[in-house]
Nucleic acid binder design. Structure first.
Lengths: 227, 227
DNA sequence: TAGATTGTTAATCGATTAACAATC
DNA sequence: TAGATTGTTAATCGATTAACAATC
């Protein structure tokens, strides 16, 4: 029956080999470029073209794009509209994804006011804070509620994304609350790395840590110049 | 004379093998943990301990820490204060680094109001914007000036870091201006990847792209649950 | 001392790059 | 057709992990 390779013929998404992290991170960059090319009126693009524009090896571009399931035509390349569509589908950008944000301070309010995430299907439907001055208010049309309301509402509204912009000491507690209420993915902007069970996905977007990398590189550049 | 391996005996920082990017990115995480341990009154830490706390292989922790030049003692481990110091020195966090920010919108103002970066030596000394309502004002004690003032001031004040929070279409132009005025490292929060000469260091902190990764993972989780 | 820990060297793993046949 | 491009397979490169001697 030649069934020994059954793992190679996945029947569902879980068994299929998932995309490497670096490839996944490049896909939005391709998407940005493709949207610009489309706006310029272009209809076809080759991996060579993408490769030159983004400084990514052309073979790597081909491999990355193949994860989205899109096939190109030898000699011509890829149709831009089709490629945009398959990247958007692959990245799950075409579905509306409702999210709760906890923490309506500086960074939280800035993110609430930024409308660019809508393009990627993110809809922040409520914010939560402990500050009585903020509770009951609105930021960019989004209501700010007491943190005590979070769990009940998250369950009832089937919210799956949590965004954390609270101070470091509160971050883990907020994450735990969110997970208990059915949240499956957390975008954590606090300076505390949160720990979560295996089935929860977290991005720790620690801006200060990111700056530390820049700081080191700047130091390198400057000490090189003092030689 | 056995001089064939001269490249292995670097006389300055440029020739010495530089730290791999992944290691560099882990160092601030170690630093955060070490500061917490110090505040708890601990004085010594082993790589095993760090490894367990942060889920990083202990050998990798040792290799990462060795880049900072710190030596541990077999059986005991590393002195926490000394380790904090060498990471801070290695990451160039102990020097004050003055920066200019261009774009005083939502995200820009939020970053201006966040005081946590001071811990890492970042001092944003001025912000620049084209909006007449903002020019002349202050955010968190930081003056907002017209963009036309940027180049002259950056040169005179020897500013080396530029932070970009302007809309996508203006990002490249702002980067070019900054580089022309002697800025050496750019922290770019706009949604447009900027291109710069080799000797300039850039971090493209594209939050929407980061969200796209979360979006994809959430899609994976959800389709797995619908099996 | 015995045992925990460091630091180094070798093996493994995974991502990137190179080579090349297939295609239009 | 000839040539540009795709998509696959093999080779390379670099980071992580495993093994282990040295140390206190």
């Amino acid at each position: 029956m030649e069934q020994e390779n059954i793992m190679d013929i996945p029947e569902n998404g879980l068994l299929s080999k998932s995309i490497p992290e670096p490839s996944l991170r490049r896909l939005p960059k391709y998407l940005n470029l493709l949207i610009r090319l489309k706006n310029q009126g272009r209809e076809i693009v080759s991996c060579t073209h993408i490769s030159k524009a983004l400084q990514v090896d052309p073979t790597l571009v081909r491999k990355d794009l193949s994860f989205t399931g899109m096939k190109g035509k030898p000699k011509t390349g890829f149709p831009i509209t089709g490629l945009i569509n398959s990247i958007e589908v692959f990245l799950n950008l075409k579905n509306i994804k409702e999210a709760f944000m906890v923490g309506a301070g500086n960074l939280g309010s800035a993110l609430l006011r930024y409308d660019g995430f809508a393009r990627y299907g993110l809809r922040i439907v409520a914010a939560f804070d402990n500050n009585p001055d903020k509770i009951g208010g609105e930021i960019n049309g989004i209501k700010v509620l007491g943190v005590d309301k979070l769990q009940n509402l998250a369950r009832r509204m089937h919210i799956h994304i949590g965004i954390i912009t609270v101070p470091a000491l509160a971050a883990q507690e907020m994450a735990d609350m969110m997970i208990e209420s059915g949240i499956k993915a957390i975008w954590n902007f606090s300076s505390m790395e949160i720990s979560v069970p295996d089935h929860i996905f977290v991005i720790n977007e620690n801006l200060a840590n990111s700056f530390a990398v820049l700081s080191h590189k700047l130091g390198q550049i400057q000490s090189a110049q003092n030689e």
